[in-house]
Lab assay of single mutants.
Amino acid sequence: MAAGGDHGSPDSYRSPLASRYASPEMCFVFSDRYKFRTWRQLWLWLAEAEQTLGLPITDEQIQEMKSNLENIDFKMAAEEEKRLRHDVMAHVHTFGHCCPKAAGIIHLGATSCYVGDNTDLIILRNALDLLLPKLARVISRLADFAKERASLPTLGFTHFQPAQLTTVGKRCCLWIQDLCMDLQNLKRVRDDLRFRGVKGTTGTQASFLQLFEGDDHKVEQLDKMVTEKAGFKRAFIITGQTYTRKVDIEVLSVLASLGASVHKICTDIRLLANLKEMEEPFEKQQIGSSAMPYKRNPMRSERCCSLARHLMTLVMDPLQTASVQWFERTLDDSANRRICLAEAFLTADTILNTLQNISEGLVVYPKVIERRIRQELPFMATENIIMAMVKAGGSRQDCHEKIRVLSQQAASVVKQEGGDNDLIERIQVDAYFSPIHSQLDHLLDPSSFTGRASQQVQRFLEEEVYPLLKPYESVMKVKAELCL
């Protein structure tokens, strides 16, 4: 049975990233139509530049190519590739079939990587351009969430054990800070992308030097003109047959890092959902379990974690691919890159769409948070109580021993009897502590235990987050809708 299948058929496997999760716009960027249309555009740009620099290419040939950029006979191309065992030459023939007058000058002087690699770089750039505003929107939604809850005390956790208090907004800023680093890295790697350009079979530009009869300047002009037509500021000066596969490492490393950030955020949300302090959106008709109707599973956060793990592992592909590119190139890269580049971007696209949807509907339960604080705060307040007693004339050592005994009794009630923490009640009825009984409410005010959390939130948002989001103001209103 021949390899390949009808990918629109229910009898043929289709990647869930495309069929179930990723956005239509990201799927289109990695589609065959987008790819092969870009090949034709690159052939047109090459012909236009070659004509401008004096090669015998007519206006009629150029116009014929322009008129057929979208006229792609995919069936013919597939048949040609089956016959020739070469995808680029299959599309040269297919393009030439609908451009008979231009057929002889299509791909003039070029090698397969002229269309293959340059198209990949265009796709990487455009895919990054799709991700950047999506990530900015996630940051914006979380920034709104953090600002609104900047002063809401909550129990902090280290080692997932109760620690000092923080605020809900401050905790959210930990998430935002990681995503801001990801946004900066995505922008950097996007701006650092260079075009492969017009380089020939081993990167020496020998074929173009021959076409222009040894004119170095025209060869350099050709490279520059096509690079500018493709919208790049610069091209690699040095290439082998391909652009260095280190570029793929750079791009997928940034995406993998984004995956790590999203995994951490969504894990926190899942843990908070278990504590009943916070939940992701839950639709009115949504079913959490087929057997347990009360369940409210954090399905979206779980999906993000599941896909983020996949995204983090994909960076190993370009690392290994770059390491086995012998001399000017081997074909070890080809099949692998067809999979890992598309999957990385479709996965990143999915987790950003999902995280935006989550961040637009996060639900906080202040009463649950308050109750958990009441359970733990008495123990945390013991040092403040000791200091207040010393100020009232008591002995630190005597007070410490009193607190120690009462704390152990209260802990026994919590752990052995399943009761509430009654340390404060014990202190309130103990005559030894009568000098500070009137101060206990103040000493137990949760806001006095959150330090500068709310001020940190305000400063972080104003100095770091809002300036970073400013270039994306025009796209901030787009909502994230999930079908599944």
Results as ranks from 00 to 15, higher is better:
Q286L: 01
I369P: 04
M225W: 06
G361H: 13
R14A: 14
L130W: 02
K367A: 15
L209K: 09
Q416M: 14
E80K: 09
L377T: 00
G54W: 04
D445K: 11
L211Y: 09
D332M: 03
V414M: 11
F327D: 02
F95A: 09
S207C: 08
T204C: 09
E50C: 08
P16R: 12
Q455W: 07
A102T: 10
F208N: 06
H263R: 04
K264G: 04
Q375R: 04
R125T: 07
N297S: 01
H442M: 13
G231M: 09
Q320D: 01
L132Y: 14
G156D: 00
F345Q: 05
I358M: 15
Q210W: 01
I424L: 14
R14I: 14
H97E: 12
G4M: 15
S15R: 11
L314P: 04
D349C: 08
A308T: 13
L314C: 13
Q458H: 13
N274K: 07
P100A: 10
K295M: 02
L53C: 15
L482W: 07
T58V: 12
Q325F: 11
V219R: 04
N297L: 03
T52A: 14
N68V: 09
T166S: 06
R196F: 06
F460M: 08
Q63I: 11
D317Q: 09
I122N: 03
T154R: 00
L155H: 05
T58A: 12
T201A: 03
I237Y: 12
Q455I: 08
P162V: 06
D73W: 08
R234A: 13
L341E: 11
D420V: 04
W175C: 00
R309W: 03
T321I: 10
F433C: 07
A230M: 02
T330V: 09
R234E: 12
N357T: 13
A235Q: 14
E343W: 03
P153C: 13
A90S: 10
G393M: 05
N384L: 11
N71K: 12
E401T: 09
A206F: 03
V168M: 08
A102Y: 03
R14S: 15
Q455M: 10
Q409W: 07
M278S: 04
D215S: 15
D349H: 07
E220I: 12
W326V: 05
T227C: 14
D420F: 05
L352N: 02
G203E: 01
R372P: 05
R374G: 09
W39Y: 15
P378H: 01
S395I: 02
L319V: 08
V115H: 04
L346T: 13
E79G: 12
L444Q: 05
A308L: 02
S289N: 00
K35G: 05
L307W: 06
L155G: 02
G197A: 15
L186P: 02
S12G: 15
R396I: 05
A348W: 02
T111K: 01
A256W: 01
Y466N: 11
V315N: 06
K199I: 00
L352G: 06
L444Y: 05
D268G: 10
H442W: 14
S306H: 01
H263G: 08
K415V: 08
V315R: 05
V414C: 05
S395L: 07
F208P: 00
L53G: 05
A308S: 13
I287N: 06
L252P: 03
C305E: 01
S140A: 14
H437Q: 11
Y21S: 00
I436K: 04
A163D: 02
S67P: 08
Q286Y: 01
S140P: 04
G54V: 01
L84S: 06
Q428F: 12
R20M: 00
S9L: 14
P281R: 13
Q456G: 06
S323M: 11
R337V: 03
L275E: 05
V457N: 04
H7A: 11
K147R: 12
